[in-house]
Design a protein around this nucleic acid. Sequence first.
DNA 1: GACCAGGCACATC
DNA 2: GATGTGCATGGT
Length: 227
Amino acid sequence: MKKSPEKRIATLYRVLRDHFGFQHWWPGETRFEIVVGALLTQNCAWSNVEKAIANLKAARSLSLGAMQRLPRGELEPLIRPTGYFRQKTERLSRLLSFLADDLHWDGVSSLRHDTVRFRRELLALSGIGPETADSILCYGFDRKVFVVDTYTKRMLSRLPIAVADDYESIRILFERTIQDEMDGTIDTFKDLHAQIVMLGKQYCRKSTPRCDDCPLFRERLCRRRRV
DNA sequence: GACCAGGCACATC
DNA sequence: GATGTGCATGGT
């Protein structure tokens, strides 16, 4: 009998977690840092986000109030290493206004806000797409939402797992899997995505030629040498 | 110098 | 609805 996509993903998680260990994600010391990092990492290497975060910390601007008080001309150079710095300054400004003015978030505590509605409101903001919204929800506010990213799509395209390649189909499949085939905890929502990023960075970049030592290949989850 | 990295919005067909 | 393009920096 053929294994269902859900069973395959559950197995995949066990293999990755055995290989990489639990990841304790998201990298970031505070909720606010996670929210900002989620936006800054849009189409750029995480090492560049780290530079920007360090700049913000040095400028004592890595808090909701401080960043909102910062003039655009002072914020732009701080986040410049992440690229698209003019767009990202605008996007950050809109996001922070929404969180502070509409939701009255203090930048530290969690929010009493229905997850479905919270997601819809984030997605309505210009510059917040599904991956950024879901990263904010899952890692910033501990909501049981699965984050789909480039690595997830690339990995799936190279595995025998039948699923449409649009964002929502993949998200729903992974969320159903975590609830039905795994323990369904927020830690698992966070760690499954983290494991896939670890796999992606090490074995699943565009330029990765082949990988006999890739854990998915070794465990025969993937028949190709290139995951 | 080309290519890539934990996206997104918008134009065009 | 699919496909192309602009946005911009830093590492390889």
